[in-house]
Design a protein around this nucleic acid. Structure first.
Lengths: 225, 225
DNA sequence: ATTATCTATAGATCTATAGATAATGC
DNA sequence: ATTATCTATAGATCTATAGATAATGC
């Protein structure tokens, strides 16, 4: 009689990590992901070595390959863990309830603060992820999906406040304003601390001018007219 | 009696390429830079190998090391060659004579067109240069210098047209507007063709909305009021 | 009995050099 | 005579695996 297996090879192929059958191996898997994150944060994807990741996790190279098919699978698993964490924070950040009664400028201030926070904390990781995206299409796809989910959430928040917008074509203006903000945020995060003078040294001045600019473009009008 | 040498070791240390004494070696040097450029364009800095560069240049690995101290020196030499070419084009692009009588919006249209052109042609090279900048400070410094030279040229052009600007603080507004444009251009170039939908598919629509936005921020007024 | 881990190492790169051979130009 | 080039290879990585040893849990 056939034994029913929890993980068939066909299904295993769809997971980055090989199945873990003992509590100990699950623990090792998480130690490895933590170690890989630290290693990549310091050296970037290209210079992260499996041996060093194993050393940081306190296990051997052989163990890494017991948990992951190859180095790429480990990187994918790590990237997905980041994605899940980011998605959770993001969904909370753009929840309509959170912004009940807030005008557009307040929503956008929140968006900017959220992004600068995430970015300052994860600058090295993000740079690494972008590098990986340029080499492997599935990294790029995962990142694009996250970006467009965030985008969709923001679009919904702004569309619900469409009567604040004086621009002749509000839907177009919303799209472009969001892209414009994204561009400014990416440049600011990418170049810090390298070119901290660009956009001014302080986040306050940056936020102030960015909002001024977006308000002028959207032709925002106070609700209580 | 001491022989006077054209290249002392002290001076050679300041050059990326070792001195060439025969016409043939000068030719080899250029072939190597061309080969390195092609190799990097295809694979990026990280995956470019010396052996493959030599093969493309039609010479041996040993010859590469006769012309360059090490792989890094070759990459530096290549980066400087790009820089020199970019600087020449740029200086021509922001020359005051070229823009005699043109209003701000026309100048900015020219800037955008120039950058999109350069970017589309050299997308892969630019991505590679950015990667290298994150690893080696002198690459970053060289890039920052070029960017700030371009910035200075544009600032001068806009400052000469300061009476078009209705913003309360024109110098601040000029700085921020230029950074904002730079951010939009970088995002558009970085993500093409990956996310061609962002900012719209056509350059025309992108340029149109970007200019609308900058004009609203600067509060541009027609000169002939 | 099965799963996890470690040790040791094969095998594939890739950078850089040593030493021999060929071309150049005062 | 000096400079340039090629061939061959040392030496340093780094990924991945084979085989032996240790821990886990039905």
């Amino acid at each position: 009689m056939l034994r029913v297996r929890t993980h068939t090879p066909r299904i295993d192929d769809l997971r980055w990590a090989k199945p873990a059958h003992q509590a100990r191996s699950q623990r090792t898997l998480e130690l490895l992901l933590d170690a890989a994150e630290a290693e990549i944060r310091e050296k970037g994807y290209a210079d992260a070595s499996v041996a060093e990741i194993a050393r940081r996790a306190g296990c051997s190279v052989g163990t890494v390959y017991r948990r992951f098919r190859d180095k790429t699978a480990l990187l994918h698993a790590l990237d997905e863990r980041w994605g899940a964490a980011f998605r959770a924070t993001m969904e909370d950040a753009v929840a309509p309830e959170r912004w009940q009664g807030a005008p557009i400028l307040e929503v956008l201030t929140g968006y900017i603060a959220f992004t600068l926070n995430e970015g300052h904390e994860r600058a090295a990781l993000q740079r690494a992820a972008i590098t990986m995206a340029s080499r492997d299409a599935s990294f790029a796809e995962r990142q694009m999906k996250l970006a467009s989910e965030l985008h969709a959430g923001l679009r919904a928040l702004l569309t619900a406040r469409i009567d604040e917008i004086g621009h002749a074509d509000p839907p177009l203006a919303i799209e472009f304003a969001l892209e414009q903000l994204r561009a400014m945020l990416m440049l600011r995060l990418a170049t810090l601390p390298l070119e901290a003078t660009l956009f001014g040294n302080s986040d306050e001045q940056f936020i102030d001018q960015a909002l001024t600019s977006i308000a002028a473009y959207l032709k925002l009008e106070p609700l209580s007219a």
